[in-house]
């Protein structure tokens, strides 16, 4: 099924809300998913995977930065993009000197990559991701979206630092994308949990109510 970027954003946002995410996190994740779809990634499938986990009642674990030599390090044992992920990006964007995030296990890396790309664009700020053995170094956002695919292969032992500020970044315009019907139906099903059955009083106060319309 072909869908507009805004349809994907709105439905993803509602699906996140239905899964218990707060409004700000639902919005950020939905922007990331819509962007991933426009960039040619299967953001909706990744979102559904992540939301299945959220249904288990996930909450943000307390995070405490620690000074390590000249650096200040935020150690995250398990990073869920919507919770520790967004908090970690905010913390990095605060621009503290020597700030570094160390992630032992990264869940749903594609969604996290989408969040980093989006944040990078909004704040004109690049991020440098490196595996702890320094074998793999990824810059996000980058001159093409290949870096997103590279990050989505990493699942553990990653560190992230802020890179240089970037005046202009490669951007992907919002566009329609194709999503498997079964995935879309599942997202719509989730989104429907944010709707409230209309009360009789509410129905009677809607636009057009109470008038003869053949006037």
């Amino acid at each position: 099924m072909q869908l507009s970027a805004n349809e994907i954003y709105q439905t993803a946002r509602k699906a996140c809300l239905a899964s218990g995410y707060p409004h700000d996190r639902a919005e950020d994740i939905a922007h990331a998913v819509s962007w991933l779809q426009s960039a040619g990634f299967d953001g909706c499938a990744a979102l559904l995977d992540m939301l299945a986990e959220a249904e288990k009642g996930y909450v943000l674990a307390g995070l405490h930065p620690k000074r390590v030599g000249e650096n200040i390090v935020l150690d995250i044992g398990y990073l869920h993009p919507a919770f520790e992920g967004i908090a970690a990006i905010d913390w990095l964007l605060a621009g503290q000197k020597g700030a570094e995030i160390k992630i032992d296990r990264l869940s749903h890396p594609l969604i996290f990559a989408g969040l980093l790309w989006q944040a990078g664009h909004i704040y004109q700020q690049a991020f440098i991701l490196a595996s702890w053995d320094a074998q793999e170094i990824i810059h996000l956002p980058n001159s093409d979206v290949g870096a997103v695919a590279a990050l989505s292969c990493l699942k553990s032992q990653i560190s992230i630092r802020s890179g240089d500020r970037q005046a202009s970044l490669f951007s992907v315009p919002a566009s329609h994308s194709v999503i498997a019907d079964s995935l879309w139906d599942r997202l719509l099903e989730l989104a429907a949990h944010t709707y409230v059955p209309e009360s009789e009083a509410s129905r009677l106060s809607g636009a057009g109510a109470g008038l003869v319309d053949n006037d």
């Binding site: 429907a192 944010t194 709707y195 409230v196 059955p197 209309e198 009083a201 509410s202 129905r203 106060s205």
Partner: peptide
């Protein structure tokens, strides 16, 4: 404020006498 299941339109409910406040818009 909430989104109604009928046609997905925004509506206004009475918090202390109608159900659905847990799904309110922020």
């Amino acid at each position: 404020w909430y989104v109604s299941a009928a046609k997905l339109e925004p509506r206004l409910g009475l918090r202390h006498s109608e159900p659905g406040a847990e799904l309110e818009m922020p």
